[in-house]
Design a protein around this nucleic acid. Sequence first.
DNA 1: TTGAAAGCGCTAACAA
DNA 2: TTGTTAGCGCTTTCAA
Lengths: 343, 343
Amino acid sequence: MVTPGRRRVTISDVASHAQVSVTAVSKVIRNAYGVSPAMKDRVKAAIDELGYRPQAVARGMRGRTFTIGLVLPHIRNPFFADILDGLTAYLETTDYQAFMIQGGATRKVEQRAVDALVDRQVDGIIMVAPLASRARLEEVAKEKPLVVLARHERSPHYDSVFDDDEAGAELVVEHLIELGHRRIAHITHQDDSIARPGDLLHNIRSATYERVMGEHGLADEIAVATSFYSEKGGYDGARQLLDRTPRPTAIFAGADQAALGALAALHEACLSVPADVSVAGYDNTHLAALPNIALTSVDQDGGEMGRAAGKLLLERVEGRMTPVRFSVTPSLVVRGSTAAPPA
Amino acid sequence: MVTPGRRRVTISDVASHAQVSVTAVSKVIRNAYGVSPAMKDRVKAAIDELGYRPQAVARGMRGRTFTIGLVLPHIRNPFFADILDGLTAYLETTDYQAFMIQGGATRKVEQRAVDALVDRQVDGIIMVAPLASRARLEEVAKEKPLVVLARHERSPHYDSVFDDDEAGAELVVEHLIELGHRRIAHITHQDDSIARPGDLLHNIRSATYERVMGEHGLADEIAVATSFYSEKGGYDGARQLLDRTPRPTAIFAGADQAALGALAALHEACLSVPADVSVAGYDNTHLAALPNIALTSVDQDGGEMGRAAGKLLLERVEGRMTPVRFSVTPSLVVRGSTAAPPA
DNA sequence: TTGAAAGCGCTAACAA
DNA sequence: TTGTTAGCGCTTTCAA
């Protein structure tokens, strides 16, 4: 039970060292009104001399902890790293710190992660692609300022930051059709979410795929493998699709991670990309840009999304109650993995 | 169950609902001695009825926050995800929660991350491959229980969990030599750390590379590109190495991430792997196993390391003061990216 | 076995 | 402008 170490410098150490009241020190560290320049200098000097840093947890007992929680499904998708970097960069200009926690693959684990954050008194929460139902998210928003990334529903109580997944998926499918493909297959993601399908990005991407196929008279060619947005998921999904006769000439994987798995499956099946089969992904992760992968993909600015999420969340922490929706417009980055279908 | 009236349920709500003292409730939630079974049941019933969850932050004011901080350099390396998963799995059997924070690429950012954790009263800290000097880590260990991953020094005040990087690097270089390679090059990592070279894994890997080369009479063939353990770093490093005449016939990248970049550079230079150049990595991330990458790599059990780190840290939180070192033995996973050199 | 009461380090009413 | 004084929600003596 022994905690190693000396006693930490507290606000009253600073107060007595500067020969002022504890309140005065508190005001200075909060930049509150009602402190003379002289007192401010004096307190600041004492703070520096003693190396004082306020204990966020104690501050939280009355006010804020200056901590925000970021719930990511997992940390295996490099796209999430982009979001985190954007968020971190934004928070650097503030007094807030972000802590990350894995939301996992099930609603139960995700809920536990959120509870852990709430129990630790974070000032606000950012959830990336949550599985929770709308109702659950509203509950969370009742407890803490909340910003949700990568979901499409409109909520009165939390902010949304998302990519226009419909536009993005359209870009991919139209691109493949323009190249002359007809047998275009899709790999989508499955989860245990009970959210409405239209709220979840993978459902939007797959529904858009089906819509655009239909609009081009290709309804009969629709082929969807329901798997996971992961390397293994993409691999499994692609194998499933390649078993079809006739074989698809193009695969649109709903995420780069899955596209990587699809590329692996094609390689294993001795099919060359793009000569035999074209492949496209979504997210434009940095792996897509590697010359030996050269994956055509949809770019959505993750850094920008992270930054926006941070900004919106702090606005909420400061008291904004009206919901804001921030949407990023995707663009298609064409690389070597897509070309005209074999003759 | 959400409280009507939206104020969070506190320990005294539970106490009055169960008609017992606050102390009694506290004892029950801490599993402390001195509560009759009857009282325990009564309190537990009240807790369930009200949906009470103790506020970790308030507990921390006197005791523990049941929170541990994990400092990762970044979240772009899938190997870190393995560590996190192992840690999370272990903590699931306890009352503790891990929060992740990015340590970044410089000592300054890393220190800020550690301070953020300390200020938020975590019960202990796990640092993965930190840049900090030994002295700095000792300081951290003085403030909080500390476990350091992927560093090799022996400390009296914190625990270490690491892979035997010397053995691992040896496996790779010996493997390449056995295949008949002589011009084996290496890509290593550069950072702003002032830690002793022998404490940092990338220095051990590169020093071992040089030693083994020397032992086989290949000292003249030593070629090291100092870059970064990242895709871009591997790409740049490989390009640098390929400019040499004669060209190396094998590249040992100190990490899979860098190996991926090297593969990309080779592809771009129209060199085939392994026919023209063999490539090996380190970490055996799941990407290495994809058939189209098929990267020979050194496996170190990240999940096991994460689990061990969690266990050791909690032991320290419980009071252990003597240092423990936990070492994982690496093994070589040979795949298609390495073969005999061209004739 | 129980519970009253004193803090933990801060913030925020309210006085001076 | 300053300082005094209650708490925030818990844990921990220490009596009863």
